[in-house]
Structures are given as C-alpha cells and as structure tokens.
Design a protein around this nucleic acid. Structure first.
Lengths: 260, 260
DNA sequence: AATTTTTGGTTCATTATTTGAACCTACGTA
DNA sequence: TACGTAGGTTCAAATAATGAACCAAAAATT
C-alpha cells in the first residue's frame, strides 16, 4: 500500500458516530505506527482534509472536504440529478426513497427524497452508512459483488439490529441468488423493526455494481399492490440513475420478464 | 513536500472552470514527473477521491468527496450554522450575504443567503472561488494575513475584472492597513461594476484569519445609511460565525470603538 | 492512407522518503 | 509524589518514491 493510500485510509475511520479521533486511538484503529500516523495526519492537516480540535488536539474531518465536495457536485451533479428521479418515485409510491453508493467497501446514502402523502415516513440523512446484511440496498449490492467481496463482508460479525435481522451467512447467500436474478432485493424488519425496504442495483461504466436505489416504508403500508408499484418504479429509476451517472446497465436486463 | 501532500496538491488544479484534467495536462500544471503523477492519481482513484472518465480517460473529482463533505458537515455543521446567521443579516440588510473560507491559499464561498426584499440581488453559488484583490472578502483576509502571504498574493498578476478594479499592489497595501484597523474591508465595483461589498474577517482557534463574512449589494443601494446597518450587522455576524466554528476573535476587537 | 504528434500508461535502476522502536514532555489521577 | 496515558519527536534502517526512457494507441496532419 502506497503512502497516499495509507493516509487516505485513515479517513475511513471517521463516521457519523465517531467524528473525532485522537492520535493514539487512530494508531489502534489503523494498526499503523504512531510516528507514521502522526506524519500522515499532519500532511492531511496541511491541506484541510482534516483539522485538529483546539482543546483535546483530536482530529476530525476538515474544511476542505465540503468545498471539494461541492466542486465535485458542480462537475458531476449526481445529487441534483438523482434528487429529481428520487422525488419522482417517492411521489409515485408515497414513500421515502434513497440512492446509496459504495465507497471504500462501505455503502453511503448520497441522496434521498420524501413523500408527503403519509403522516409517517422513514427518515433519512445524507452520508449515513448502510449495512450490507440488514438492508435491501446492501443486499442487492452484495448480490452483484465478487465472491471475494461477498465472503469478506459476510465473514465479519453481523450485527443483529432487530429480532428479525438475518445473521446466518449461509441463509443470506441463498437469498442473494434470487435477488440477483430479479435485480431486486428485499429487507423486512432487518434494520429497524418497522421498516420494509426494496432495492435495485446501480452500475458504473464498467458494469460493476456500485450502489443501489431503494424505497423504504413502514411495514404496514407495504402490501402486495404497493410492492408491485414500488418494484416497477425502482427498476425504471435504477436504469435511469445508472445512465445519469455514466454507468451501463447489464445487457440481459432488457430481455428479462419480471411478471413473477 | 511529502508524497501525501504532493498527491493532495493535485486536487487544487480542479475548479469550476476546469472539471476534467488529462494526465499530460496535470503533469504540466503540477511540474511533477509523469510516472509520479500517474501513480499519485491512481492512488487517489482507488479511494474515490478522483475518478476517470470512460471516454478520454481524463481525471475529475471523485464520488468520495461529497460523502466526506457531508460527514464533515455532520461533525462540524458550519454550513448549517452559518446559513442561519447569514439569513439573519440578509434579512436585516435586504442584501445577499456569504461566508467564504481559505483553502490552499484560495478563498471559496462556503455558504450564502439571499434576501427577498428587492427584485434584484447579487447572486452566489457554493464553492465559487473568490479573488483577493478585487473583493471585500479577499481584501479583509489579506489585511489579516502574514507579510509573506500578502506579498505572494499581490505579486501574482492581478486581473482587471472591471474598469475600476485596483491592480496597483502599493495602493492595495495602503488600503489594507485601514481595513485591518477597522476589521472591515470594502470593495466598490472591483469584481463586477454594479456590486458594492463589505466584509469582516473570520478567525480560527489559533486566531489566524481564515475567511470572511460579506454582504454584496447593487452599487445604487449602498448608501450611507445602509452601509452603517450593514457594517454593524457584519461585525456581529463575524464574531458569531468565528465562535460557531470553534475560532477565537482577537482580544482587542471588543475594546474598539467603531463610531467613525 | 501514411506519417507525425500527442495521448495515457509503464519499466526499473537509482534515489530519497518513509518507517518504527524508543524517547520526550505534559497533563490528569490515585 | 508516583503513575498512567496522552500527543508528539528522533534518527538509523528499511522501503517506497522517483524519473528518463520506453510503449501502444489514438488524434492530428500530411
């Protein structure tokens, strides 16, 4: 691993639940020597990629990131484009939709939309991390991943978020086969007891699955007819979103007939 | 310069007007050897900091940046916080306000707010780069910068954006003295003929000036009385914003009396 | 259609930077 | 006061970065 990669890998330890990391903590997390970590952090610091808190001298993500992020958005307005598509399917289905993309072996919510049809809704936040085994987005991405990646993700300890979270990797793998065949994954109460979600895959320019569009609804509202509406909306949105980010949907998709 | 810094420095060549950069072009821009640039870009590529276009294999800012940017925002919600403060002073003054921060020796708009009082307004965009010599924000930052930085910025060729842009560095330096004394810079028609702007400095935790809050209005609306209102609103906002980003306003500011 | 130029990308011996065990200093705690 | 832990530093040894020359392929030019 090159020095640059090592430095950038340090950024992956920051998350919504861990916004500040001390030097020693970072050493433990990364397994890299303290002097090295310190030097890498110093370089990132110089460029505003991270910054240091005044009190405890802990590190956190820096001011350059929102600026670079908005420059990226200006160059490739995925968020903007996807917001439109997402709003459409949220309006159509009456439920919360979201787009999530892979980054560094983790899925992140990139964009989302709400519907105002119902008084209750599944809430969402930009940048949130998504687990692979307990959400429809995660599952559909896994179903299109390499065996290596799949094994890696399923061999980690799988957290039981609810009483209904499936954590048996054999059983999960079995489900993935049909998810892949249908270009659609489902998760009922896997992450939160009251949430039922459906997801379709998103592909990049080399036909690799790099994310998912999903719709999440309260369990009680996901009946047979809304599942039908949701599924067809998601399939269309997935193709549209894949195209809009310069990706290519697999050839065979067009020839499939999903009248299950 | 360390390898990490070298890699990160490549990111500075991307801007709103140059969203894609080829390998050879990047070599020219950075003055670094081609093999090195290629390796650095490859490492950034791996982490999604940049990505490559399918057609021309050019490089552009990557999908990790908006994700990291929103994580940063979640950890230190400058944009969110500043939007409130900015909206307040925009409502009060009836004009467009914005917050800009230094990154890599460049000023960028981080957040802004409009007022709906008038039919015309100065328009703004997140991430826009701001020049030092022709805007009030740039000038106020210069007035609080080190001599080194000042010389460096003023020795570059200064673009004459309008017929009234001051490009005589001696004259600019003279003005900076009073700007610093007053914690307030002014620019009339320096960047656009019809824009009059005022700016106050923002400081970080080590009392270094890292940006500015500014109000920009059509020249015709900036009369003596609105300048008074604007100035006092900006001074308050600057202290508030400085505090909200964990910065410290210089001690002497409190003791000053600005009844000019 | 043939040729030249320019592009993105690679190779590998030389060179310079990164690395890490041990060390330092400051602060909080028992 | 003694102890543990924090962030940060040192410097010889180890390793990774570097760059001139080189490819292959796509544009541009003839």
């Amino acid at each position: 691993m090159g020095t640059v990669s090592k430095a950038l890998s340090l950024l992956t330890y920051f998350s919504r639940s861990r916004t500040e990391i001390g030097l020693t903590e970072m050493v433990k997390l990364s397994g890299i020597n303290k002097a090295t970590v310190h030097r890498l952090l110093s370089e990132l610091l110089q460029h505003g990629i991270i910054e240091q808190t005044a009190e405890k001298r802990h590190y956190r993500l820096g001011p350059a990131l929102p600026i670079l992020g908005s420059l990226r958005e200006a160059a490739v307005p995925i968020r903007e484009i996807s917001k439109k598509v997402l709003q459409l399917i949220s309006d159509l289905t009456g439920e919360t939709s979201h787009l999530s993309l892979l980054r560094n072996e983790l899925l992140h919510v990139v964009s989302f939309a709400y519907s105002s049809r119902h008084g209750t809704r599944v809430t969402m936040e930009d940048g949130t991390q998504i687990t692979f085994h307990s959400t429809s987005s995660g599952l559909v991405v896994l179903s299109f991943s390499s065996q290596d990646f799949l094994k890696k993700m399923l061999s980690k300890p799988l957290q039981k978020h609810t009483s209904l979270t499936e954590i048996n990797s054999k059983k999960i793998e079995k489900k993935l086969l049909s998810f892949r065949k249908n270009y659609l994954a489902e998760s009922i109460s896997g992450f939160e007891l009251d949430v039922h979600s459906l997801a379709c895959p998103i592909f990049d320019s080399s036909r690799r699955c790099i994310g998912a569009v999903a719709i999440a609804a309260p369990v009680s509202r996901m009946d047979t007819s809304s599942i039908k509406v949701t599924t067809s909306a998601l399939r269309k949105a997935a193709v549209e979103l894949t195209n809009s980010i310069g990706g290519v949907f697999p050839e065979d998709f067009k020839n499939l007939n999903f009248n299950e």
